[in-house]
Structure formats: structure tokens, C-alpha cells
Design a protein around this nucleic acid. Structure first.
Lengths: 330, 330
DNA sequence: AATGAATATGAAACTGATTTCATAACGAGC
DNA sequence: GCTCGTTATGAAATCAGTTTCATATTCATT
């Protein structure tokens, strides 16, 4: 690979001049500039990024932490982030935390090591006290998941309202016995907690008290959804509707319910969360809460770039609207 | 951020010695080693990757090109690659080519610029003549998609056999009028071509000649699948079965067919390709060809690392088995 | 006791860029 | 004709490591 010295030698100029041409500095005579550009082209010269980084302290790379990329919600989010980053000349390094504290920490260290200029976290595994110190090494932005900390920038959705809308939708359809499925009730972080309170609020407002055994926690997959139905079938006091924090779980519920002769939505109404592609594939099609994933990704990259360019910009919080998509499962 | 010089100053040793400790060189007295490790720990020193790269020419990063991450096939593949890379201490940079030649070239340049040590290509947009020169800058491995070039390593599936199995399965079920859906008939590359010949071979063997209007090309999405059914409905000579090169297209076909009163598999039998999660969600559940995605990812990383460590290892080709999963759509 | 190999360490060169400092040439203003 | 600001360029320092070369000990061998 040719280096800047090669270009200097060929053109008979100094490295400084070549560097100035590359970086569009002023005060270069146009004939020399031409000459340099021509030589670079000729020998196929391209500046070595490691050397630039070493000097310039910037990597043009942003890191994205997702719990798992195979979850469509996150693959769509990553898609949007990658597209927007590319537009702005940034590369994206993707990490899956797999819900593991250690892996998350490992990735946060990339910020410390200056392998990335900034990080977008779409989930949080460690305590905030553990994560916060990394902010001194570069900007961290929370997208989707969040903590109640004014010092960190976040792009988030009104999950509370989403859950409220979903639950109230079921109530408006005449349901009173409404079960609730969530990922982590005790996760301690914002997103799921918000949904919980949203559900709670809607129930309270309509003076409904759910049977405690209708609250299902730690449900993530299609299989988990199926297990929910099995549990419900063995109950004496059965719910007539379920609000699920995940489309996948909702799909599992629908599949298993049908398998057991339940009619949807007549015997059991189901609302999901995310509006994943599968929402239109299950039968009946799933009523769900749509999250503006693309906007979330775009906004996150936008904000992060702003933070990276302006070291001491204040933390910002962006909240995006959320929406109920009514289909056939309610 | 502390540097190696800080550690040297604190311990009263030279940078060389510190470097030797970091890199586990022999011939260091154990008391000095302890001292250095302690000092590093104390001031929270971590070697700057850019400086190491500049000298060492290795980035511990591999690049992965996928057409689009939101396609479950690729998000599962990326998942597997990322997991295996992490195990081997490699980071993964992910790029979406979005089927664009330019974007693919941009990413290949990362190899030239030494931003990545090697690249796994899961799709190919440019002519091989355009891509090949990049191999001089570092190893390139083809995974999933491939070209008929002995000089490049590949991890691939017997697509030909997959398509053959799927088609023959339909024939065994008594079908004679079998339509065929593919991504790109004229793409010119291995994967789709192999599937085409697999279909062809099965038909030929059983002395069947498909109506040319039953061959649908450039179909990728659920929507595309729906359009296929619409076209079929307007035909005089209708196929009784479809072999689709994609589960998503197959799902679209099933949804739209049911919408129009067709019974599956009685009026129309459908076979997909990939065994994506949605194959178990559509109703009836989709008979499909299962590809061993995880093994593919693992094998690819394994092979790539081998190539990166051994500069002049010969190109290898790994072919993984493929399998028919019979469900309810046939 | 002399020689040579193995062990242990440091100084300085090197990786490939950017940036600072110095300086030369040129034109404008007095 | 002299000073000053602008334009244009190069030498050398710098970034943070790794590697080469040199050298000083220590220990075993004859």
C-alpha cells in the first residue's frame, strides 16, 4: 500500500503539502494541488485510517448495542441506524449483548479505547452507576430503553401511553378481564416499567382490578406465548383479553389459542406491541402498537453526531409518537 | 487517557518493557511484570488500538456485507457470525449493500484501508472482476452467495439439491403443474442459478414441462408473493403448486391465496425456502427448505480467521447439508 | 577462569498520518 | 525602498504503540 511519503516523493513535494491537499487546507497553489491529486489517483493512494485516528482521535465509527439482532424490532432499528450513519459517513459496529452484563461492559470499553466515537445503547444490562463513568470517554445515547437520568441523552417512545392505549382499546371493546404479558417486570429500567404503569393506569381509570395470576413476566418468544395460553387454560378465572408487550409473544398466544379451539377475538382478544411483519401474517391479523422505528434510528444517529461534534452539548431527550394499529385480533 | 509512557514513568521502566509485558513476550522478570500489571491496573491503562494497528497492521475486526439486515435469513446469519467472532476476540462491522454496487465497493475499500482484517460477503453485487482485486489486500470469503472461482474460499449450501428436493416433494404429492418463484433469474451468480437448475432438473426427471408464465422472477417480499397469486388467478392454465425461493414470498402467496378462497394445500400447495420463524406462523404452516444458518456463520468465521492467520493458505470450499421440513402447506 | 548461551532491559527507529513552527516569496501601503 | 500581511511550502515534532539493535547480567560448560 502506498503511503503519503510515496505521494510526496513522486510529486517532489513534502508530506505536509500532500496532507494539506487531502484535508482541503487553504493556501495551496492550484497547480500543486492538481499534481498531488493526479499522483494519488495514479498510485491508488488512500490515507491509512489508523494513522489518522492516532493523530486525530476520531474513528468515524459508532457502536450500537442491541440485545439480539434476530429480534425484528432490533434488526429494523439497526437497519435505520446503519443507513443514516452511512449517509453521514459513519460506519457502524454492531454488538449483541445477549442480555449479558459482561458483554455489555466489553462493548462499552470500545468507547474508552477509542475504537468508536460514540455509542447507541438500545438496551441496558448493567446498573447505571456502572455505565455512567464511560460517558467521560465519549457520548452515549440511549435509544428505546432508558434510565431516569437527566445527564444522558435519550431517544424514546411514550411506552406508557402505548400500553395505556392498548389496554384501553381492549376495555372499549368490552373486556374487563385483561391479562398482561411483559418482558421484565423487575428489570428496573424505564421501558418495561412504563408499559406496566400504562396498563395499570388504564385498568385503574376504568376501576378494573386484574387477577394477579393474569400478570405474566419474562415472556419474550413465540414459545413463551404458547405457554401463557397453557397456563390460562388451567385457570378457573380466565381472562378474556391479553395485552402483550411483544408481537412475538402475542403470535404465540394466538397460535396456541387456536390450537385449543379458542376463537380470536371472540374467546380471547389479543393486542401486541411493535407492529412487526408477523403481525400481518398471523391469523387473525394482530392489533398492535406501532413504534416509529425508522425515525428512532434516524433521530438517534442525528443526535449522537451532534454530541460527537460538540463535546459539551447538553443532554437532550427526544420523545416520538406511538400509535395503535387495529387489525383483527381485537 | 493514560498511555504506555505513563506506565513506564510510574514503574521507572522503559516503554519497551511495558510493551513486552502487554504482549506476553518472554524474558521478563516476574517482579517487574507484577509491577507493570499493577501500575496498569491502578491508572486504568489500556493500549490504544489505533497505535497498535498502525504498527501491527491488524485490526481484530471483520467486515460482513449483507444485502439487508432486516431479512431474517441475514439477521440470523449475522447473529451467528457475531457470536463466533466475539468468541475469537474479533469485532464485527456490518454493512448493508442494499443491492447497490457502489455501497458494496465502498465496503470492500475498508479492506484496502485496513479498517478490517477480512471480509465475509453474503451477497455479491458487482462483477467478480471488480471484486477480485480486493483480495490482494486481505482475505475475502463468500458465504451463502458465491461465484464459480476456485481462487476464493466459500461456505455454501447445496442450493441445487434444496430446490430439487422441494420440487420433487411437490411432484411426489401428485402435482404436475408446478410454478417457480425466485429472486433473480438473471443475477448471474451461483445461488439463484443453482436453485433454478435444481427446479429444472426435478421437472425434467419427471418429464414435466412448466408453462413459461409460471416462472416468476425478482420476487422478494410478502407483497411480491401476493402479486404472484393475483397473476396466477388471471391465468387460464393455473399451476397447482408453487416452489418459492423465499419463505417471505411463500407467506405472501398463502395469505393472498386464502384471501381469494383458495384452500392450501388442496387448491395450491406451497414450498418455501429458509425455514424462517414465520414458517411456523402462517397458516397452514409452511413446508420449506431449512438452511443450517448457524453452522454457516460459524464455519465462515472459522475459515476466515484461518485465512487471516495464514496469509497464503489455499482457498477452501465448504458445503453444508440442506434439509426439507414438511409442514402443512403441501 | 574463560567462553558462550540464555535472560532481561533500554534507547532509538519505525508505523503513516497531522500539526506546529519557521521561512520564503509576493503584493500592498506608506 | 521599507515594512507588513497574505500566500505557499517544508522540516520536524507528535500521536501511542511495537520492534530492532545494543548491551548488561546471569548461569552453565569446558
Amino acid at each position: 500500500m502506498p503511503t503519503i511519503s510515496d505521494v510526496a516523493r513522486i510529486t517532489g513535494l513534502s508530506k505536509s503539502t500532500i496532507s494539506r491537499v487531502i484535508n482541503n487546507h487553504p493556501y495551496i497553489s492550484s497547480d500543486k494541488r492538481e499534481k498531488v491529486l493526479k499522483a494519488m489517483e495514479e498510485i491508488g493512494y488512500y490515507p491509512n485510517p489508523s494513522a489518522r485516528r492516532l493523530r486525530g482521535h476520531t474513528t468515524n465509527t459508532i457502536g450500537v448495542i442491541v440485545p439480539r439482532i434476530v429480534n425484528p424490532f432490533f434488526s429494523y432499528l439497526v437497519n435505520s441506524i446503519e443507513q443514516e450513519a452511512f449517509k453521514n459517513n459513519y460506519q457502524v459496529i454492531i454488538f449483541q449483548s445477549n442480555d449479558l452484563k459482561d458483554k455489555e461492559l466489553y462493548f462499552l470499553n470500545l468507547l474508552k479505547n477509542r475504537q468508536v466515537d460514540g455509542i447507541i445503547m438500545t438496551s441496558i444490562e448493567n446498573d447505571w452507576e456502572t455505565i455512567e463513568p464511560f460517558m467521560q470517554y465519549g457520548p452515549i445515547l440511549l435509544c428505546n430503553e432508558y434510565v431516569n437520568q437527566s445527564s444522558v441523552s435519550k431517544v424514546r417512545l411514550d411506552q406508557n401511553k402505548g400500553a395505556y392505549m392498548g389496554t384501553e382499546h381492549l376495555i372499549n371493546k368490552g373486556h374487563q378481564k385483561i391479562a398482561y404479558c411483559t418482558g421484565g417486570l423487575f428489570a428496573g429500567y424505564g421501558r418495561d416499567l412504563d408499559r406496566n404503569t400504562g396498563y395499570q393506569k388504564a385498568m385503574d381509570k376504568h376501576h378494573l382490578t386484574p387477577n394477579p395470576s393474569w400478570i405474566f413476566i419474562e415472556r419474550h418468544s413465540i414459545e413463551d406465548g404458547k405457554s401463557v395460553v397453557k397456563e390460562i387454560l388451567s385457570m378457573n378465572d380466565k381472562p378474556t383479553a391479553i395485552f402483550s408487550g411483544s408481537d412475538e409473544v402475542a403470535a404465540g398466544i394466538i397460535i396456541e389459542a387456536k390450537e385449543n379451539g379458542l376463537r380470536i377475538p371472540d374467546d380471547l382478544a389479543v393486542v401486541g406491541f411493535d407492529d412487526q411483519p408477523l403481525a400481518e401474517i398471523v391469523e387473525p391479523k394482530l392489533t398492535t402498537i406501532k413504534q416509529p422505528i425508522d425515525e428512532m434510528g434516524i433521530k438517534s444517529v442525528e443526535l449522537l453526531i451532534k454530541m460527537m461534534n460538540n463535546k459539551d452539548s447538553l443532554a437532550e431527550e427526544v420523545q416520538l409518537p406511538i400509535q395503535l394499529i387495529e387489525r383483527e385480533s381485537t
